[in-house]
């Protein structure tokens, strides 16, 4: 009767990271740059692998609270990093917002003011997530009330709805501008909101990854992907 219990326990023990793996949790908007930075790290530290988990910043922090293992954490804003409560986080990049429109600009959108038109289908992030908090800040700075038809939980969903033509306009990160099927309309600097991306580490390998992100090479990769300097 007890042998299968042993088997279950052994199986439960498997699945942890190998000794030479660095686990990194990063906001999903960092998918492109962090994949490249992970390659750079692996080249600089032969024999190690970087396993990056991308997700919504708040989601990742929730997982960490429940005990998920990670050596380094990169969030899309300062507020989420503060919630994670890791020691000495550092800013490593910034990301401003931009309006995106689908091909052909069906809603004839020209600027931020057009987004308050209730006849247009506008999709934004919900204020509970970093990109939504930035959008809300823009609304306040510009003194407009965006007539949103949907408030998504992830910036990728906003991008998806605009690129598929479901929405006339959306507000996403500037780093998302390279995506297929969307063109950007700039938001004036005076009203734009900028998210500061924070990174923190809690062991040696994590700190090495952090150093790679902050290095000249890492910063160049981020700049190439549309991020601003910290």
């Amino acid at each position: 009767m007890k042998w299968w219990l042993l088997a279950v326990l052994l199986l439960a023990g498997c699945g942890g990271p190998a000794a030479n793996t660095v686990t990194v949790f990063a906001a999903s908007s960092l998918t492109s740059p962090f994949t490249q930075i992970a390659d750079i790290y692996e080249q600089q530290h032969p024999g190690t692998t970087v396993a990056v988990t991308f997700g919504g910043s708040a989601d990742l922090v929730a997982q960490l609270e429940q005990g998920a293992p990670a050596s380094a954490l990169a969030t899309a804003d300062e507020a989420t990093m503060a919630k994670a409560d890791w020691t000495s986080p550092q800013p490593f990049a910034t990301n401003a917002m931009t309006i995106v429109i689908p091909e052909g600009n069906p809603g004839a959108v020209r600027g931020i003011a057009d987004l308050s038109n209730p006849d247009l289908t506008v999709v934004i992030c919900a204020p509970q997530v970093p990109c939504g908090a930035a959008t809300a800040a823009i609304e306040q700075s510009a003194g407009i009330d965006i007539a949103a038809d949907s408030e998504e939980s992830a910036v990728a969903d906003v991008l998806g709805k605009v690129s598929s033509g479901q929405a006339d306009a959306g507000i996403v990160y500037q780093s998302d501008l390279g995506s297929a099927g969307v063109t950007g309309i700039a938001i004036p600097d005076s009203v734009n909101a900028i998210n500061t991306y924070m990174i923190a580490a809690r062991d040696t390998r994590g700190r090495e990854f952090l150093d790679t992100v902050l290095s000249e090479q890492g910063q160049q990769v981020l700049a190439d992907n549309g991020f601003g300097p910290p």
């Binding site: 708040a58 989601d59 929730a62 999709v123 919900a126 509970q128 949103a148 038809d149 949907s150 408030e151 998504e152 939980s153 709805k161």
Partner: peptide, 18 residues
Amino acid sequence: GSLQGVTRTLPLEIYLQR
């Protein structure tokens, strides 16, 4: 989509609140 009172049903509200 997800908009309070229009399309944000209880499961969607939970997904956002978490």
